[in-house]
Nucleic acid binder design. Structure first.
Lengths: 340, 340
DNA sequence: CTGAAAGCGCTTACAG
DNA sequence: CTGAAAGCGCTTACAG
């Protein structure tokens, strides 16, 4: 009735626990006949090793923790696909949402230290998380790879996989400038996030190089969501002296803005060009379809996972190592040359 | 240097392991002075109980497994929010994507049996999963609650929280009929999923009650994604004898269809009414904004979690128990009275 | 190739 | 209120 243990299997097969254990973990070290007998008993009893006991005994699990900002964002979905395809069956991926990590109770630490995950993929390197990692005494022993976002100073020595956010923002801004816009605002992500900073620099530099002054005033911060975009739209589009083009830190912001533009009497792209970031599936379905900067999400996941595997195999290898993946401007119909 | 154990803490505090254990788990059973001393040592050493050892010893974890179809769908995001808000700090939520569950290797079983999760919330009751659950000998002992989807016959006795999908589809269809449409097609989800069946019945009944014949031919199956919608559009809109209204099993399908309607020379809603399902955040940002059926996602999560807590507290309580939450038609601009 | 034995870090009756 | 002791289900040197 109750679950069979290794002891029960050993008894039924007439061997020792050790041998059963070897049949599971190192079958090549067991004689063929013994192996067959034990496997038969395992089959018959439906024995499955208690992973909790296994992990406890070994002092390590087979769990890779992937930290994302939130479920419900398609970019994470694709990245996680990539991660799983590389990690395969040997590791279990468990997801943690950084937004659910409250100040007080630190499940994150619990997971890392107490639950003994074997590796971490951080798809959000924002301060609360990065700082917690550094607080860990045994931090250097735990393989961590950062994906999607660049690395914060806190985590100076972690391997990272991401696009060149500076250059991507520079390219997108350059494209808008080349379309005749000069009154451009960058609707950026959370202040202080590194990915935001890189993109802001790209935007500022492209604008400044085009001879535009007062560029820092052209940065508006927003939550990376539809609601954030709606809020930004209200702050930016009410005035008569509104910008002619908006470059947004992600597609959700852009979609939020586009959805309320008509309330301000604005048509996209005739009166207002809107550019997104990420190339989410919803960018292509927008009306007009959203111009954006595509990130190779799945590949970011694959490379991050490969790097993690390497870090788990050779923990002593130096960590510093950044892989830059190509971005791509995807020009659709939400952007157009400036009129007049 | 290495992590302190309970033994080390006991030694430093001059007490036994048992007492340290009690300080952690049942502090009210420890004398104030002893408790203070032990806590001080815990603080100083940075001791954290090894959760793996704890769980192993207790024969149970604090992990609640939530099975979703895929990360990247906003409805799951909201449901999970609701779940977490109810489960609070006492339990860890781990997410599993059903789409990543391959035929061969059964991580699902591993998690349930071997990793000893304390409860499961199934947000997808499609056959591969439901069947696996039933295969488990010890299944009755594991608290499982199904949310969002109705329950399959396989799982006859599980508690469930969802809207009345039959009635919701009936209402939406009724609304389209009342707007003068009678050439309506239901772009449904995967054949065989129960949620799909309920909705199909609602659609068929509403149509039939309106005196329309040949209704079963008006069901088209599609993947619940933008791509699925695009594919369905190509099958449905190319003909001269195209329907005047489409009712879609989720918003993504609807958005996919709307995005390609112009290629067929169709304007939404003038030439084609499109109705979605779920009221995802993207429904409101669509152009025209998408009419849809709203599900109370967050509340589904909350109620599911509450039901699970109850099931974990009183495992002997009979499982059969269905909670129906209200749905709501959200009429925006993608639907309009039939012209001509 | 196999077995006996120790032990991973906790918890939990059982005495006192 | 506290301690000594057993044991959860495995794995892993160590002998043979």
């Amino acid at each position: 009735m109750s679950k069979p243990t290794i002891v029960e299997v050993a008894r039924l097969a007439g061997v020792s626990n050790s041998t059963v254990s070897r049949c599971i973990n190192t079958p090549e070290k067991v004689e063929r006949k013994t192996l067959a007998r034990v496997r038969k008993v395992i089959e018959e009893t439906g024995f499955r090793p208690n992973l909790l006991a296994q992990s406890f005994r070994r002092g390590r699990t087979d769990i890779v923790l992937v930290v994302i900002h939130n479920v419900g964002s398609s970019i994470f979905s694709d990245i996680i696909d990539g991660i799983r395809s590389v990690l395969g069956d040997r590791y279990s991926v468990i997801l943690m949402e950084s937004r659910s990590e409250k100040q007080g109770h630190s499940r994150f630490i619990d997971l890392l230290v107490a639950r003994q995950v074997v590796g971490v993929i951080l798809l959000c390197s924002s301060p609360p998380f990065s700082r917690r990692l550094v607080e860990l005494d045994n931090f250097p022993r735990l393989p961590v790879v950062v994906g999607l976002e660049p690395i914060s100073e806190d985590l100076a020595s972690l391997p990272t996989v991401h696009i060149d956010n500076y250059q991507a923002a520079h390219d997108a801004t350059r494209y808008l400038l080349d379309s005749g816009h000069n009154d451009i605002v960058f609707v950026s992500g959370e202040r202080g996030s590194l990915i935001t900073q890189d993109r802001e620099r790209g935007f500022v530099d492209a604008m400044t190089q085009a001879g535009i002054t007062g560029v820092p005033d052209r940065l508006v911060h927003s939550e990376l969501s539809i609601q954030g975009g709606v809020g930004a739209a209200h702050r930016l589009l009410a005035d008569k002296t509104r910008p002619t083009a908006l470059f947004c830190a992600n597609d959700d912001i852009a979609l939020g803005i586009m959805s309320v533009a008509p309330r301000f009497g604005l048509r996209v792209p005739d009166d207002l060009s809107v550019m997104g970031f990420d190339d989410s599936p919803y960018a292509a379905t927008a009306n007009p379809p959203l111009s954006t900067v595509a990130q190779p999400a799945r590949e970011i996941g694959e490379r991050t996972a490969r790097r993690l595997l390497r870090a788990m195999d050779t923990p002593d290898e130096p960590g510093e190592w950044t892989e830059i993946l190509p971005h791509r401007l995807v020009i659709r119909q939400s952007t157009a040359p400036r009129l007049g």
